[in-house]
Design a binder for these strands. Structure first.
Length: 552
DNA sequence: AGTTAAATAT
DNA sequence: TATATTTAAC
């Protein structure tokens, strides 16, 4: 029997070990096919006689996972004894002769596929797809016992993919946290960039099983990466909401990092042809696959890296991490640790951090900002969507409740607010109207997305050990240059320039607390600070975080 | 390792 | 063309 627990467990390298019944009256042909199958590490038992084959099956029903039957070995005047007798076993018919009616007859009788000889290696290699397909799609619950182990194995593999990824032996485990822990986490999305999600299987007939099959294929073929030792890659997915529309969304992906060392080899090319027709055209990078399967698939393949899709969730984690660490300590490695997203690399974080910082500074690549004049893009829309720019973390006393949302874009506000436990002024529950929903603002243009960058991370988790960190953040009170009340948003245009200036100044002040405050900024009164701390039930004050002193 | 700029991919 | 990410460089 195939179905022992050990089988399931040990069958990590599925489909290797798949047991194939080969029935072909032509011994030469049989030998040839058998050889090919064995090269793929399938276990083949050849029968030249149909009765022997049927006998073997009847005596040990679970002996085989799939059968390959040469038509003439089974055809008795139009009746296919084997097919009629063996309904549970996925059977692939093969023939030298191309006879449509025979093909149809076989399919009608349950053959899962009809192939013309000589059977290509690719076809043979992919016979497992039928097995998996049948295991998952057998009508009703009637899954042949011989396929149960496969089903479980596949399920197990797919599942593993999501949960464990430790990959290599030496990978540090710092990040073991599974991304799935949180309900809503969908972390990285792997996007197969191509558009197609699930390429068609080798066989046309299947419909539903495809996705699964393809996934398997992907898993098997590609693999995971490797990375420098820092992290592992894989990712996962859990997708959620978006899943519905696109198929792709489910998988998340990530790619890896550069130095991969493993050599994974070459096994991968196998199926490309089957699937990626679309992808192929573009660079190979597109073929991202999910690598999360640490185990099964270690074979690495081409080491292309998948692009990390900074989904809102992922970004949220990122921002939260940054906030917890505080500006000065928000470095890639630490952020990465806090994020606990598997598969994400330090480089990925660094890159995102770079972008994040730029946004915070309102430095869009093109913008001309004194120090950042990279004048690539001379004109930028001068319209800044964000409302006002409260640049202070501490809200003016008079607005203590009114939570003023921090300026979306590069504002610093987010730093203060989101931190867990320390929800400063930003009122978590309801954001002001202008605040873009959780959508993906930043995927759009300028102002729009920008908001996602600066906006507070949503829900401050209960209490985080770092909750106190944020304090050192902006405690300055901004003397509104526009001379308007905080609650009133001046026209965007008016603010733009000033805002950028302000952000810059504030940033400077925060990062260099030892320097005198620039004009326009005034420190909050001790009273207001204490009051705020008190309100937040913070009794102790860090004297220095990053070397900066808050108050004492 | 962290930043930042340049290169690429979409 | 602009943007989002990755790579390369420092």
């Amino acid at each position: 029997m195939v179905c022992t627990a050990s089988d399931l467990h040990g069958w990590k390298d599925f489909p290797k070990g798949l047991r194939v019944l080969l029935l072909d009256g032509d011994s030469n042909s049989a030998a040839e096919i058998k050889t090919k199958l064995e090269e793929m590490e399938y276990v083949v038992v050849t029968y030249c006689n149909e009765n022997d084959a049927l006998l073997a099956i009847s005596s040990e029903p679970e002996m085989f996972h799939v059968a390959i039957v040469e038509v003439t070995a089974s055809d008795h005047d139009g009746t296919f004894k084997f097919l009629e007798a063996v309904k549970d076993l996925p059977t692939i018919m093969i023939s030298n002769i191309h006879c449509l009616s025979t093909m149809m007859k076989c399919i009608e009788l349950g053959a899962i596929e009809f192939l013309q000889k000589p059977v290509s290696e690719d076809k043979l290699r992919n016979i497992w797809q039928h097995v998996v397909h049948k295991a998952f799609n057998a009508g009703g619950n009637a899954v042949p016992s011989s396929l149960k182990p496969i089903k479980e194995s596949v399920a197990s593999i797919l599942h593993l993919e999501l949960e464990n990824n430790e990959n290599k032996n030496q990978v540090p485990h710092e990040l073991e946290i599974s991304s799935c822990d949180n309900v809503d986490d969908h972390e990285l999305l792997l996007l197969p960039e191509g558009s197609d999600k699930y390429p068609a299987p080798s066989t046309p007939q299947q419909k539903h099983g495809m996705r699964l099959v393809d996934q398997m294929n992907d898993l098997l073929e590609k693999e995971c990466g490797e990375q420098d030792g820092e992290e592992s890659k894989s990712v996962e997915t859990t997708c959620t909401a978006q899943v519905e529309n696109s198929q792709l969304s489910d998988k998340e992906v990530i790619k890896e990092e550069e130095n991969s060392t493993d050599g994974c080899g070459a096994a991968s090319n196998v199926d490309h042809e089957l699937h990626d027709r679309d992808n192929i055209s573009s660079s190979e990078k597109n073929k991202s696959k999910a690598c999360g399967l640490g185990n099964p698939c270690r074979t690495k393949v081409s080491g292309k890296k998948l692009k990390v899709d900074w989904t809102p969730e992922l970004h949220r984690k990122f921002v939260q991490a940054v906030e917890q660490l505080g500006v000065n300590q928000a470095i890639p490695s630490r952020i990465l640790e806090l994020m606990k997203v598997e598969g994400l690399t330090r480089h990925n974080v660094a890159s995102h951090l770079q972008k994040y910082r730029m946004h915070k500074r309102h430095i869009l690549p093109k913008e001309e900002d004194g120090s950042w004049s990279s004048s690539k893009d001379p004109m930028r829309k001068n319209y800044y969507p964000h409302p006002q720019r409260p640049v202070m973390a501490y809200p003016p006393p008079y607005h203590s409740n009114h939570v003023m949302p921090v300026a979306p874009i590069g504002s610093w506000g987010h730093m203060a607010c989101p931190s867990p436990g320390v929800q400063m002024w930003a009122p978590p529950p309801s954001y002001p109207p202008w605040r873009p929903p959780e959508t993906w603002p930043w995927k759009s243009y300028l102002g729009v997305h920008g908001e996602a960058w600066g906006c507070p991370v949503t829900p401050p988790p209960p209490h985080s050990p770092f909750s106190s960190n944020p304090h050192h953040i902006a405690i300055f009170e901004y003397v509104d240059v526009h001379d308007k009340s905080y609650g009133i948003a001046p026209s965007p245009v008016d603010l733009q320039l000033a805002d950028e200036e302000i952000d810059k100044v504030v940033k400077e002040a925060i990062s260099k607390p030892w320097l005198p405050l620039p004009l326009g900024l005034k420190p909050p009164s001790t009273e207001s600070v204490l009051s705020e701390l008190s309100r937040q039930q913070i009794s102790t004050t860090p004297f220095h975080i990053n070397g900066s002193k808050l108050l004492h």
